[in-house]
Design a protein around this nucleic acid. Structure first.
Length: 283
DNA sequence: AGGTCGGCCTGGCAGC
DNA sequence: TGCTGCCAGGCCGACC
């Protein structure tokens, strides 16, 4: 499942190689979530600029705007100079003078569409704070979580709160922060904001260092697998001992998502009491 | 407005 | 062996 680390590793694996390339053709396979948004031929002869990332989105700069791409659940991007003939799951090829960028996505939850520069701020304004940016402070996390009654696990999956965290790294971040996934997000105190901020950053950075997680068939732009799945602390480790040495990892379902955690060391916070009425005088 | 749920999609797997 | 049915999950839109 491509989350922020996988998208970032993918970006790094081809950004330098595609920069400055000229588009020669666009080939479409089966329809993805959204239509391309332009005639494929209209991209021809445009020069590719920077490849940026926001949350789980990749943004390929072209002359008339940008190509916004999302890997959905099962998507991967490959950039190569001699791609094989398109297979049944290759739904988008960007053929350039430097090579072909190919989106492979069996489940077709991915996206690739052209967007005007003018529309980009609006599009990205729906996304929450970027967790690997300087803006992601404990105070910012606290501000975003304030008043929320949803469980921390649901909160972390909400892209309008924090952009880029998905099911895997939500579990890993909550374990690192020693916070129970069912704790109401708004019940955190400042020390929890700090622990969770640090947990999210550490989980994402460790995954980027490991080349991402390849649970099913994730590959980066060079076709390399990641190894983070071998280093998960709790995710998919139901029944295994907690890495801290005590207790056992359990699996529950939160917001329809498999959620792995250690009940022994992840503290369940209680809902903040509503503002109390003035204490009654003792009789 | 926050929260929840169903739909999208298909490979893989359990159960018969 | 082959069929059925369920599950995984990111995101969107509908609804409460």
């Amino acid at each position: 499942m491509p989350e922020l680390p996988e998208v970032e590793v993918t970006r790094q694996s081809f950004a330098d190689r595609i920069r400055g390339a000229r588009v020669e053709a666009v080939r479409l396979g089966k329809p993805l979530r959204w239509p391309l948004g332009c005639e494929p031929d209209s991209l021809r002869a445009q020069v590719v600029g920077e490849v940026a990332r926001r949350g789980k989105y990749l943004w390929l700069e072209v002359e008339r705007g940008g190509l916004l791409m999302h890997l959905g659940m099962s998507g991967s991007l490959a950039f190569s100079s001699a791609p094989a003939l398109p297979g049944p799951h290759n739904h988008f090829d960007l053929v350039t003078t430097h090579g072909t960028l190919r989106l492979t996505d069996p489940r077709r939850f991915g996206e690739a569409f052209l967007i005007d520069d003018a529309d980009l701020p609006l599009r990205f304004s729906r996304l929450g704070v970027e967790p690997l940016s300087e803006d992601f402070t404990p105070e910012e996390l606290g501000r975003v979580a304030a008043g929320r009654t949803a469980p921390l696990k649901s909160f972390l999956l909400d892209q309008s709160a924090i952009a880029g965290v998905g099911n895997i790294y939500a579990d890993e971040a909550l374990y690192r922060a020693r916070l129970h996934p069912l704790s109401p997000a708004g019940s955190m105190k400042p020390e929890h904001w700090l622990a969770l901020r640090d947990g999210i950053v550490a989980a994402l950075e460790a995954a980027i260092d490991a080349g991402g997680s390849s649970i099913d068939d994730y590959r980066d732009g060079r076709g390399e697998k990641g190894s983070m799945q071998e280093r998960f602390l709790v995710h998919t480790r139901e029944g295994e001992p907690c890495p801290s040495g005590e207790g056992e990892v359990v699996r529950i379902v939160v917001a329809g998502r498999s959620t792995y955690f250690c009940p022994g060391c992840q503290v369940r916070l209680r809902r903040k009491p509503r503002r109390r009425r003035p204490a009654r005088r003792a009789k």
